[in-house]
Design a protein around this nucleic acid. Structure first.
Length: 742
DNA sequence: AATCTTACTTAGGAATCGACTG
DNA sequence: CAGTCGATTCCTAAGTAAGATT
């Protein structure tokens, strides 16, 4: 039995990874995950109830990868794996009920799916990247975000209320550490900083130019690839850290799955994959229940051991950079798991393998001790000493992402703070150029030169709608677009001069917006679309590179994303100035702020899924309001009676009500009214914001100095606006003058 | 000039925290 | 004092954009 079952369940599809093995009908478990180099892709598929007979086995190659995707994709209902017990329970239920399953699937991925079977974007790549098919035909249902976008038209320019940029920047950028001086609680490291802090400290200031290091890696790093990149600027002088931590090794538990009711032995590696995908309980004949139960138990136990673990990790949390102890952002190596990806990702369901020390490259000061490899008997892949980059460690898993993963300092570090500040300063410079830039592109809406016209229109869209640049993508990523990669059918012309946008952007979030545009733009878009098919590039003459190259000529440092920062921040600044009233209480002021924040979030299209309890929450509020209103009626009756000198009626609960003066009744009524109104407002806000994510713009787009200054002017404590971590991230902004203007 | 490589910012959802309620 | 629920933090995917390579 065993071998038979295993051979059905297990399959070793070494290499040829890259095949998008997605949610098909079988579970594929690497039979030989030889640590490290096995690149097995494992797919745990969720299956629909259809085709129950079908092999659970997928040994025949045809089944094993690519081909079938398109058809299976359409039916696929993705299940959110690795979820907590809750999700699992849900799932179990759903498995018993097809239609429920459907809805769950839709919820998970459907939100982001565009409803367009018609479009069949046959890999439209202008770069004709021989995509095998990519068959993107989602027919999935779209959950419409009911927010009605209002043609966010003019970001209106001008308005030169401004503050000399240079002002403070000057003073502290030259000496990086200053701004946070007092806040750097942990300044001097307790640990090893004693080594030679002063020496290095003194040497640190000249962080200016100096592109490469001249005498690089001669004898050190064994193979440094010779490309000192980053921006070529020196990022540190001394750098000490302890490397990274790894997830605990997998501990085989020996619990079995059942195949046709009979237990099946699993190798430790096979076992590991299964607990990683526990939201899936059965594949017809397979029964994962025993393992599932083991998993629940284990989860409980882990909770208890948590404190101890944290203690052990403490040493990995910090780095000492130029003598200053700073928190590291992600010192934990990512654990293995099943890759989901966002939206309709070609690689979803692939097994994300375990990362070992020999996958990891460390970057550390030349004089710092090289961290001991935490896993006995293993060693780091490489040690570098590159002070033109800020990362401390790096690895990658090409099967899943060709991109590298980096370990770096946390957002609260002064290094990150400085670059955050630089970002906003750069965006502020746009104020001085925006007028002429707008003039210039407006002029070029009608240029005879198609390339110029396309650049003009693209820039306009980026400016006006805060679209992302749209850098080129590979075929093995989800099919999403930004401005330069828009396809013909993503924009619809609505007579006489409206454009309707509908496409999936970053994270497969849908961008849906209808705006009125200048007639020349309308016309130009019509021209760009003319003679092309739906899946062709709207802007065939340009890409993000070209666009940025052009922008750079208009203003040094200008790129497409600067417009997003600029428009977000300027909008916050203006709206706050306009809407904030004096003499109202803090809560009122916060409402104004949140409203402005919301405006920005909508401009940037920052969305979130409606929480599953949203409906219930609203209902609860509603009920409470009704209750209050009911109470109001009674109060009014009693007021009348009091005026006539009658005693109040007894409450509905039969209790006696105190006899009080009409004035007292009036007061009660007023209070009750206030309360009801406030709740009404809360409910409205909640409904309003159910699909809007305020956090993203707060963290990344709105210059924190605007908020800090506003707090100072309005006597609002900063902790009302920024959480603790946000305050830490924005220490560099805390000492801003109250009259700061973006 | 297109493409690849590198390194860094931006992003939504899951997990966890912590205040509140019954 | 457990269970709920909104807020916050964690996690890591998915962008941008530079510089190097072909």
């Amino acid at each position: 039995m065993r071998s038979e079952a295993i051979s059905k369940l297990v399959m070793h599809n070494d290499d040829d990874d890259n095949k998008p093995l997605v949610f098909k009908k079988s579970v594929v478990i690497p039979s030989t995950v030889k640590d490290g180099d096995s690149e097995d892709d494992t797919i745990i598929s969720s299956r629909k109830s259809t085709a129950p007979e079908q092999k659970i086995n997928s040994d025949d190659e045809s089944d094993d990868d690519e081909a079938p995707i398109s058809s299976s994709l359409q039916k696929k209902k993705h299940v959110n794996e690795i979820s907590g017990s809750d999700g699992n329970k849900l799932l179990v239920k759903k498995f018993q009920n097809g239609s429920k399953l459907e809805s769950k699937g839709t919820k998970v991925s459907g939100k982001r799916l565009l409803e367009k079977d018609s479009s069949t974007h046959q890999s439209s790549m202008k770069k004709h990247k021989a995509s095998s098919s990519s068959a993107k035909q989602d027919s999935a249902k779209t959950e419409n975000l009911d927010r009605k976008r209002k043609a966010v038209v003019s970001p209106n320019e001008t308005d030169d209320d401004d503050v000399p940029i240079a002002k403070r920047i000057k003073s502290d950028s030259s000496n990086s550490k200053t701004p946070s001086a007092k806040l750097k609680v942990t300044k001097q490291s307790s640990t090893s900083s004693s080594k030679k802090p002063e020496v290095t400290r003194g040497a640190s200031p000249p962080p200016k130019k100096r592109s490469k290091r001249s005498k690089k890696d001669s004898d050190y790093a064994k193979s440094s690839k010779s490309s000192p990149s980053g921006d070529g600027k020196k990022k540190w002088t001394t750098l000490v850290h302890n490397g990274v931590t790894f997830p605990p090794p997998y501990e085989p538990h020996g619990t079995k799955i059942l195949y046709k009711g009979k237990p099946v032995n699993l190798s430790p590696e096979q076992e590991e994959v299964i607990p990683l995908s526990l939201s899936l309980r059965t594949l017809d004949d397979c029964d994962f229940t025993p393992i599932y139960e083991w998993h629940l138990e284990k989860k409980q136990k882990n909770k208890e051991k948590k404190g101890k673990k944290q203690e052990q990790e403490e040493k990995y949390m910090w780095a000492i950079i130029d003598g200053v102890k700073e928190k590291i952002g992600n010192y934990k190596v990512e654990p293995p798991g099943l890759f989901r990806g966002r939206g309709e990702h070609p690689k979803m369901g692939k097994f994300k393998r375990r990362i070992h020390p020999h996958d990891i490259t460390l970057n550390i000061g030349k004089d710092a001790p090289i961290p001991e490899c935490p896993i006995p008997g293993e060693r780091w892949k490489e040690i570098r000493h590159d002070n033109t980059v800020s990362w401390l460690a790096m690895w990658n898993d090409p099967v899943i992402l060709k991109k590298d993963k980096y370990v770096g300092l946390s957002a609260s570090s002064s290094q990150k703070g400085q670059s955050d500040k630089d970002k906003y300063e750069n965006a502020r410079k746009l104020k001085d150029h925006i007028e002429s830039i707008r003039e210039a592109y407006t002029k070029n809406f009608t240029s005879k030169d198609v390339l110029k016209r396309q650049i003009a229109v693209a820039t306009y869209l980026i400016d006006k709608l805060a679209l992302r640049a749209g850098t080129d993508k590979d075929d093995d990523e989800a099919d999403t677009v930004g401005c330069c990669t828009l396809k013909v059918d993503h924009v619809e012309c609505i007579h006489p001069n409206q454009l309707k946008f509908d496409f999936l952007g970053k994270d497969s979030i849908r961008y849906e917006n209808t705006v009125e545009v200048e007639p020349p733009v309308y016309k130009a878009i019509g021209q760009f679309k003319a003679g092309k098919s739906d899946s062709d590039d709207l802007f065939d003459e340009i890409d993000a590179n070209k666009l940025n190259a052009h922008l750079k000529e208009l203003m040094p440092g200008l790129t497409a994303k600067v417009f997003r920062t600029y428009n977000a921040s300027i909008t916050l600044d203006k709206t706050l100035r306009r809407e904030t009233k004096d003499g109202v209480d803090i809560n009122q002021k916060k409402i104004v702020y949140d409203q402005a924040n919301k405006e920005v979030a909508i401009i940037c299209n920052h969305q979130r899924a409606v929480t599953k309890s949203h409906g219930a929450q609203v209902k609860k509020l509603k009920d409470k309001i009704d209750e209050l209103k009911e109470g109001l009626k009674q109060l009014k009756t009693n007021l009348k009676r009091a005026k006539k000198g009658e005693a109040p009626l007894e409450g509905s609960d039969g209790k006696k009500t105190r006899n009080i003066t009409p004035e007292a009744w009036e007061k009660k009524i007023a209070q009750q009214k206030m309360k009801a109104e406030k709740m009404e407002h809360d409910m409205q806000t909640k409904e309003d914001l159910k699909t809007v994510a305020l956090g993203t713009s707060k963290i990344n787009y709105m210059d924190p100095r605007i908020t800090v200054a506003w707090c100072k002017r309005n006597e609002v404590p900063i902790e009302k606006m920024f959480t603790k971590t946000l305050q830490e991230k924005f220490t560099w902004a805390m000492d801003v003058e109250p009259d700061f203007r973006f």
